[in-house]
């Protein structure tokens, strides 16, 4: 699968001297290729999160289009876009994202159970948790997990449906060096299997895995 952003930009309302809005992301083009890991770095507040939210269908751009295999993400309705996100996108958001009413296993299986039964995918969930070193937390409710454990849980959740597009916002921010390797090896394996991977990060340890590196500055994306 291929994800392409054409002239995508996003403004927010914010009062300043002359205007009452500003562009967090200036109109830009970006292409995520199958089998490749793309990394975006940049200072905090430069627009990275805004950009990737637009790329995965969670934030409507102020201008431009986002195309998944030539299909305009924002041209379809909520239902269709949600289903597409469920099937084709693996999203690891910034911050902690565990549902407190579910165990670690149920959280990982959430994208599966949402549109059907999670039966038959449990083995897969277990393998993912094993690879991430938290298979012993299978039955533990997510509010009892540490930051790093929650982070790995959301990595497993993003990968459970074998998505063609993987988008991760600082996925190794709260991980130690060894665990970072676990996560990156998993993402690399996905890329090798054909997924297009995009990672936003400040982490030096992630750089060696990158096929392409961009830096973002004040909403402008530059190839490094």
């Amino acid at each position: 699968m291929k994800l392409r952003a054409e002239n995508v930009g996003r403004m927010y309302f914010r009062s300043s001297k002359n205007t009452n809005f500003f562009y967090a992301v200036e109109s830009l083009d970006l292409e995520l290729e199958e089998g490749k890991i793309t990394v975006i770095t940049g200072r905090s507040g430069s627009g990275k999160t805004t950009l990737i939210n637009m790329l995965c269908g969670l934030l409507t751009p102020s201008c431009g289009r986002v195309l998944l295999d030539d299909k305009d993400l924002y041209a379809s309705g909520d239902r269709e876009r949600s289903l597409l996100r469920n099937r084709s996108f693996g999203i690891i958001p910034q911050g902690q994202t565990g549902l407190q009413c579910l165990t670690a296993a149920e959280n990982v299986l959430l994208p599966v159970s949402m549109y059907g039964s999670s039966k038959g995918k449990e083995d897969k969930a277990r393998i993912l948790l094993e690879k991430l070193g938290i298979d012993d937390l299978w039955d533990v409710y997510s509010n009892e997990l540490s930051g790093g454990e929650l982070r790995r849980m959301s990595v497993a959740r993003a990968l459970i449906n074998d998505p063609g597009i993987i988008i991760a916002d600082e996925p190794t921010g709260d991980l130690d060096a060894d665990t970072t390797v676990l996560v990156m090896e998993l993402l690399k394996e996905r890329a090798r299997n054909g997924a297009a991977v995009l990672i936003v990060t400040h982490d030096k340890d992630v750089m060696p895995y990158a096929d392409t590196v961009y830096t973002m500055e004040k909403g402008v994306l530059k190839k490094a």
Partner: peptide, 16 residues
């Protein structure tokens, strides 16, 4: 709010 956002990330529609 955050809980709903997580459900959305995993692919839930607003209706769900």
């Amino acid at each position: 709010r955050k809980e709903f956002a997580v459900l959305r990330v995993a692919g839930a529609s607003g209706k769900m």
